[in-house]
C-alpha cells in the first residue's frame, strides 16, 4: 500500500507526455501516402483525444483541445480554426455530461465519444464544403467507421496507460 502514491504519480507523469504525443500522431495520420478522392480516414486525432480525455480526465484542462485542434487544422485540410473550435466545444459539453453522469461504463464512454466524433464530422462538413457538394454519403460512412474504430483508440490508451494495481 505504501508504494501506491508514487506509482500513481508515475502514471500521471507518463500520461502527461504520452497523451499529447499520441493525439498529435493521430492527427498526423493524414500524411500517409494515399491521395483519397473521398474522405476515407476517420479523424484519429479527435478519437484519441476523446479516448484519453475519458480515461484520464486529470491530465487535461478544459482548454487543452485548443493546441491539439490548431495542429489538426494545419494538417487535415479543413478550414483553419474549425477543429480548434469544435474540439473545445466537445470538451465543454463533456464536462456538463460528466457532472451529471459520474460513474460511467465503457458503453457510455463509447456513446459520448461517438457523439463527439459524429457532431464534429457533421459540423466540419458544413463548415468546409459548400452545401451543394455531394459529400453526404462519404461523410456518413466516415462517421460509421470512426465510431466503430473508437474502441481501438480506447484500447490503445489502455495499453499505453495501464492503471496501477490496487493493493
Amino acid at each position: 500500500m505504501t508504494a501506491r502514491p508514487a506509482e500513481f504519480r508515475d502514471t500521471v507523469a507518463r500520461a502527461r507526455w504520452l497523451a499529447p504525443l499520441t493525439i498529435v500522431l493521430g492527427s498526423l495520420v493524414t500524411i500517409v501516402p494515399i491521395v483519397a478522392i473521398v474522405p476515407v480516414l476517420p479523424p484519429f486525432g479527435l478519437m484519441l483525444l476523446m479516448a484519453w480525455r475519458l480515461r484520464r480526465p486529470d491530465v487535461f484542462r478544459s482548454w487543452s483541445p485548443i493546441p491539439f485542434g490548431l495542429f489538426d487544422d494545419l494538417v487535415s485540410g479543413q478550414p483553419f480554426g474549425s477543429a480548434m473550435m469544435l474540439w473545445t466545444l466537445c470538451f465543454l459539453v463533456l464536462e456538463v455530461i460528466e457532472s451529471r453522469l459520474v460513474w460511467r461504463d465503457f458503453w457510455q464512454d463509447w456513446l459520448i465519444a461517438g457523439g463527439a466524433v459524429v457532431l464534429c464530422l457533421a459540423a466540419g462538413r458544413l463548415l468546409a464544403s459548400p452545401l451543394r457538394s455531394a459529400v453526404g454519403t462519404p461523410v456518413l460512412l466516415q462517421m460509421a467507421v470512426a465510431v466503430a474504430l473508437y474502441p481501438l483508440a480506447a484500447a490503445l490508451c489502455a495499453r499505453l496507460d495501464p492503471r496501477p494495481k490496487a493493493a
Binding site: S62, I66, G69, G81, L92
Partner: peptide, 21 residues
C-alpha cells in the same frame, strides 16, 4: 480561469474560421 480560456479558444477558433472562409 480554465473555463474562460476554453471559451476564448472557441471564440478565437470561430474568428479564425471566418477569416479562413
Amino acid at each position: 480561469l480554465s473555463y474562460v480560456v476554453a471559451g476564448l479558444g472557441v471564440a478565437i477558433g470561430a474568428v479564425l474560421l471566418v477569416l479562413s472562409t
